[in-house]
Structures are given as C-alpha cells and as structure tokens.
Amino acid sequence: MHTAKTIGAAITPAMKENMKCPKCGRDTEWLRALSRVDNKTMICDECGTKEALDAMGLTEGSSVRKSILACVGRGSTPQERIRANVQATGNKWAMENFRDTHN
C-alpha cells in the first residue's frame, strides 16, 4: 500500500468496499486525499481536488476548474490512463514500447 509523507505525519489511503467520502457522502473505493480543512480527514479524489482548486483561487464556474475536475477519476494513476490511451490506438509497437519503458 502506498503511504504519503507529509510534514510530521504519514498518511495511508483508506481502501475498503462501499466506503463513503466524509465530505461529499458519495460511495467510493478509495479515500486518498488528505483534507486541507483539518489535515486529518481522508476524503475522495474529487473533494481533494476541489479543495486544492479552491486554495488556488479557481472558483466554481471557472473553465480551468471544470477542465481539471473532468479528469478526476479517469483512472487510478496517470500511467494507467496513458496505458489505456496507448492500447486504444491498437498500435502493437507503441504497446510494446510502453510496456518495456514502464515495467
């Protein structure tokens, strides 16, 4: 399991079936984001992203904010999203190259 290090604390993402985000109340498989509100509560990726965007001053209605939030949840990691994009091309050489450079 991945453990993130923060100033003075080690944060381990919570992984359970049918868990709810304490901030938005939606069902989720992961609580991987540490809330900026109290620096203790683990929240879902989307709520964590929203808190980060709020801290940057990207308010509701911002086109940049909408674009960023549209990307949340497309895959667990950037590597998995790229792997899916490469596989979608059907290019055998590209898939072999990705496998050889990312494993």
Rank of each mutant, 00 (worst) to 15 (best):
P13T: 03
A14E: 12
A14Y: 00
A14W: 00
M15P: 00
M15L: 12
K16W: 10
N18Q: 09
K20H: 13
K20T: 10
K20S: 12
K20A: 14
C21F: 04
C21T: 03
K23A: 13
K23F: 07
C24L: 03
C24D: 07
R26W: 08
R26P: 02
D27C: 08
D27W: 00
D27Y: 06
T28C: 10
T28Q: 08
E29P: 06
W30N: 11
W30I: 11
W30R: 12
W30M: 14
W30T: 11
L31Y: 00
R32L: 14
R32Y: 07
S35H: 07
D38R: 04
D38E: 04
D38H: 09
N39A: 13
K40S: 13
K40C: 12
K40A: 14
T41E: 06
T41Y: 02
T41C: 02
M42N: 01
I43Q: 01
C44I: 08
D45A: 15
D45F: 14
E46V: 15
E46C: 12
E46R: 15
C47N: 01
G48M: 03
T49L: 09
T49E: 09
K50Q: 15
K50V: 15
E51S: 01
E51Q: 12
E51M: 03
A52G: 02
L53S: 03
A55F: 10
A55N: 12
M56K: 10
M56P: 05
T59W: 07
T59G: 15
E60N: 11
G61F: 00
G61A: 07
S62H: 04
S62W: 01
S62K: 01
S63P: 08
V64I: 13
S67D: 13
S67L: 11
I68H: 02
I68C: 08
L69T: 05
A70V: 05
C71G: 07
V72I: 15
R74N: 12
R74A: 14
R74D: 11
G75L: 04
G75H: 02
G75T: 02
S76C: 11
S76G: 13
T77C: 11
T77K: 05
P78A: 06
Q79L: 15
E80Q: 09
R81S: 09
R83I: 00
R83C: 09
V86D: 01
Q87V: 09
Q87D: 13
A88R: 07
